[in-house]
Amino acid sequence: MTGSTDDVRGVLTRRPDGVEVRFERWYATTVDDLWEAVTAPARVARWLGPLYVDPRVGGRYELRMGEDVPDADENATGEVLVCEPPRALAVTWVFPDETVTRVDVALRPDGDGTRLLLRHTGLADASARGYGGGWHACLDQLDDHLAGRPVRSWDALYAAATPAYADVRTDVTGPA
């Protein structure tokens, strides 16, 4: 998976505003390269799907994780809330038939690589487990892309990862 001995699993935590899915992953690349891999449409298309974005605060995006068709059921859309290259990105996340949630990505140098922190907040209990497995699969695909390996099937990675996300812990301290 990653170039580190870190546990690559995410954590689901119940907070007052919904469930948070949180991942911390280490990648054997520079901050600038990882930023490009998660924000540049040509790079994102190699491991996740076509991305159409106006990369500025207030800009809109559409991430097409199925077919490259506008407004499809597999597309996430939203607004760019934070864009501070190459360190921080936050967007609203709108997925068909779900409430609006938020995704934050932070990057920081860590030894001879870069640590990525991904937080998806405001999730409903019913969808949190799926997002745990889904983000796990996506971050594994990102690792494949960064390592120059063929990117594995999202469906297979999701099926393997999702059972690890059965438990949601309750945070008694409040939002992170």
Rank of each mutant, 00 (worst) to 15 (best):
P70D: 09
D71S: 04
D71R: 03
D71Y: 03
A72S: 14
A72Y: 06
A72G: 13
D73Q: 09
D73K: 10
E74W: 06
E74V: 00
N75R: 07
N75E: 11
A76D: 12
A76L: 11
A76Y: 09
T77R: 14
T77Q: 12
T77D: 04
T77G: 00
G78T: 08
G78V: 03
E79I: 06
E79M: 01
V80Y: 05
V82F: 04
V82C: 04
V82K: 11
V82E: 15
C83I: 05
C83K: 04
C83Y: 15
E84W: 06
E84S: 06
P85Q: 05
P86I: 00
R87L: 01
A88L: 11
T92N: 05
T92Y: 06
V94T: 11
V94C: 12
F95Y: 05
P96E: 08
P96M: 02
P96H: 10
E98M: 14
E98K: 02
T99Q: 15
T99R: 15
T99V: 07
T101W: 05
R102D: 01
R102E: 13
R102S: 03
V103M: 04
V103F: 01
V103L: 08
D104R: 09
D104C: 07
V105G: 00
A106K: 07
L107E: 14
P109L: 12
P109C: 07
P109E: 15
P109T: 15
P109H: 10
D110H: 10
G111I: 13
D112K: 09
D112G: 15
D112T: 02
G113E: 12
G113W: 14
G113H: 10
T114H: 04
T114F: 01
L116G: 00
L116T: 01
L116I: 13
L116D: 04
L117W: 06
